[in-house]
């Protein structure tokens, strides 16, 4: 596999003494949507947090655009263009929708582009524009997910790490989130997408990895994985 925009090599990481990843390697090619599949507790969130710098790996290397970044703090990685949209829509509940978005442009490289970012976020999610004065905590689950995505885009990312963006959302809203992901890819953004909805994820993914109990067990193109009988039985319920 060719060198990716993001390259994780032999990552061991976890919480305290409990390791959630036992030597995982993964590459995300520039301009691709890469899927990260696996059941609850397989290590998907841990992997994304490690890539974003929220979690420091016990072992392993992380390279972004050819530079080693394992020792860099989360804020420095955002400055380089790695932005995590965490699971559970961690928005700022007391701030208005617009303030939430503005905080998203906190990184120095994103600050000059606030106006453009707001415009783009409101174009992607007209619902947010309607609710721009409302406080974030009063939004519905789907709207909060839109806000979390919009806020992440304000940081002018090159690589978006999406952690379960459709978790707990109504099917129609989930579908609209996938539509947005495809639009972002079309705009040239590179995306690493952790999802439980394997079918829909693989349908839009260029490449995919399957994690089980903190170990990579399978990888391949989206079409290959979709056609794989093991994937079918384990994640698609066929």
């Amino acid at each position: 596999m060719s060198q990716g925009l993001l390259q994780l090599t032999d990552i061991v990481a976890g919480y305290g003494d409990v390791m959630a990843l036992h030597g995982v390697s993964l590459a995300v090619r520039d301009g691709s949507v890469t899927a990260l599949l696996g059941s609850n507790g397989a290590g998907k969130s841990t992997l994304l947090k490690t890539a974003a710098g929220i979690l420091t790996p016990r072992r392993g290397e992380i390279a972004f655009d050819g530079a080693a970044i394992a020792g860099k703090r989360a804020s420095e990685r955002v400055e380089r263009g790695i932005v995590l949209i965490p699971e559970g829509r961690l928005i700022f509940p007391e701030m208005s929708v617009e303030e939430n978005l503005r905080v998203g442009a906190f990184a120095p490289h994103a600050r000059p582009h606030v106006a453009r970012g707001l415009e783009r976020a409101y174009a992607l999610f007209p619902r947010l524009a309607e609710r721009r004065r409302q406080s974030g905590g009063t939004l519905s689950g789907g709207e909060q997910q839109m806000l979390a995505l919009g806020r992440g885009l304000m940081a002018e990312p090159r690589l978006l790490l999406l952690d379960e963006p459709t978790l707990g959302l109504a099917p129609l809203i989930a579908q609209s989130i996938f539509t947005v992901i495809e639009r972002l890819r079309a705009d040239g953004l590179t995306i690493l997408l952790a999802e439980q909805d394997a079918r829909r994820t693989l349908a839009i993914a260029d490449y995919g990895y399957v994690l089980e109990s903190g170990t990579g067990v399978m990888e391949g193109s989206g079409a290959e994985l979709l056609a794989d009988p093991k994937i079918n039985s384990a994640y698609l319920g066929l």
């Binding site: 989360a74 965490p86 961690l90 992440g152």
Partner: peptide, 19 residues
């Protein structure tokens, strides 16, 4: 601004690049 983001949700503040 950063401190306020930390007060509201520290983990989210970290993901938007607040040191």
């Amino acid at each position: 601004y950063a401190l306020r983001a930390i007060r509201e949700n520290e983990e989210a503040a970290e993901t938007v690049g607040v040191p």
